[in-house]
Design a protein around this nucleic acid. Structure first.
Lengths: 237, 237
DNA sequence: AAGTGGTCTAGACCACGCG
DNA sequence: GCGTGGTCTAGACCACTTG
């Protein structure tokens, strides 16, 4: 059961991405859209606000809503998108190699990052992402076993993200992302095709569930020349 | 004239940041807040949605709104915040040195980035940001003269951003940000205290006005060890 | 003056969490 | 069953843009 405003939001996105609604043109006014979809103005406005937030349109008072053409490519790396979704969108052949998969007792660093006690058990997953035959990304994931009782190599090779949302039914609420650049470690050099690079782009991700519990800590370590982060931001008051 | 929901939004932020409302506690329910502020539920909901979007609270159906404690520090680098706002927030002594300020004819690269023709004139501003006596950031800004007729050294040493919003009254709508890591150029080495680092974190910013016109292109070049980008993301449908 | 989006209101029903 | 937030409606007034 999907809400009306989400349905309309998705329908308009489809129209924009398929080119049925051209970019830089005006969208129908809120009044027209009300009639078109037989809903109240507030429902239309919810859909349009979502479109605006996510960079599809820009509303201008007194004039109308205009379709932006920024979203053509290079948008996906933002937000919470996973590696699998990403590589599928870009359409580059890529693969995931699981290097380590085990249950561990957290050390001090992990206890702090994952907000767990020394008696909790934690899944540790280390994966290498290969893009076009080069080992480019080293992913280190840590989950509290409380939330994820079972984890297999197959799941890790596919998408842990999908498993969590679809199979376990856990709903992800929000995430904090931190990007820095560091000296490459021995581990980086061991697992990745670093060529002559001695630095690594580190993306730390703290992922929280809907009920605000910290659920996962992830470190994604990228070869600097292959790293790109794109973000869309609106002025927030 | 500020809208009610923005006023309430800001009031609640103040309460959260001052500690009057403690983190990890429950906020008053929408019903209570209605009475408290003597407004309709919809107005309260607008305020709470803003708070949720910006990472102050998490709403949970059937339970209530909970105050998050993520926003303590390290949040500002996200979004559209300017260097001046940022260093004021962090409270580190910093200064800006204007290296170049001139009107130029755009080359091919700029024509593409700024979406201007060869007959337009473009402001070129090059500034070095000093943090704690070290030259850390090289900022290269380009504006279409059409939007900014006058620009002085004084303005560039203060905040171009404030000048644009307050003096010129231009309203910024949204921005696209792109982060990559590149080899340091001769220009980087000339202007910055790079020490032994030979790479540079490049943050490209495309800034658009309210009416969707591309207004400014900025390249912010950071010494890698001093770079940090923090982002808060909610799952977007 | 007419049309647009922005704000605000009042009321209704629903789905969820908890006791 | 009660209180919570989520969705939807209908109507009103305002500020802004354009002809």
């Amino acid at each position: 059961m999907v809400s009306k405003y989400l349905a309309i939001y998705n329908e308009i996105i489809t129209k924009i991405e398929s080119g049925e609604i051209e970019s830089n043109t005006k969208l129908s006014s809120e009044n027209e859209l009300m009639k078109e979809y037989s809903v109240s103005r507030d429902t239309i406005r919810k859909s349009l606000n979502l479109l605006e937030q996510n960079g599809y349109i820009q509303k201008i008072k007194g004039k109308g809503s205009f379709v932006l053409d920024i979203n053509k490519f290079d948008f996906p790396v933002s937000g919470l998108t996973s590696f699998k979704e990403l590589s599928e969108k870009i359409g580059v052949k890529s693969s995931t190699i699981v290097k380590e998969l085990e249950l561990i007792k957290p050390d001090k660093f992990l206890m702090k990052q994952l907000n767990v006690s020394k008696d909790d058990e934690v899944w540790k997953v280390i994966r290498v992402r290969e893009i076009g035959d080069k080992k480019i990304i080293l992913d280190k994931d840590f989950f509290n076993k409380k939330f994820v009782p079972v984890l297999t190599k197959d799941i890790c090779e596919d998408s842990i993200f999908e498993y969590i949302e679809n199979e376990l039914g856990l709903r992800i609420g929000f995430a904090k992302k931190e990007i820095t650049v560091q000296q490459a470690t021995e581990e980086d050099k061991k697992y990745l095709d670093l060529e002559n690079y001695n630095m690594i782009v580190v993306v730390k991700n703290y992922i929280y569930l809907d009920d605000t519990s910290l659920f996962q800590y992830t470190e994604s370590r990228h070869r600097p020349d292959k790293f790109k982060f794109v973000d869309f931001a609106r002025r927030s008051y």
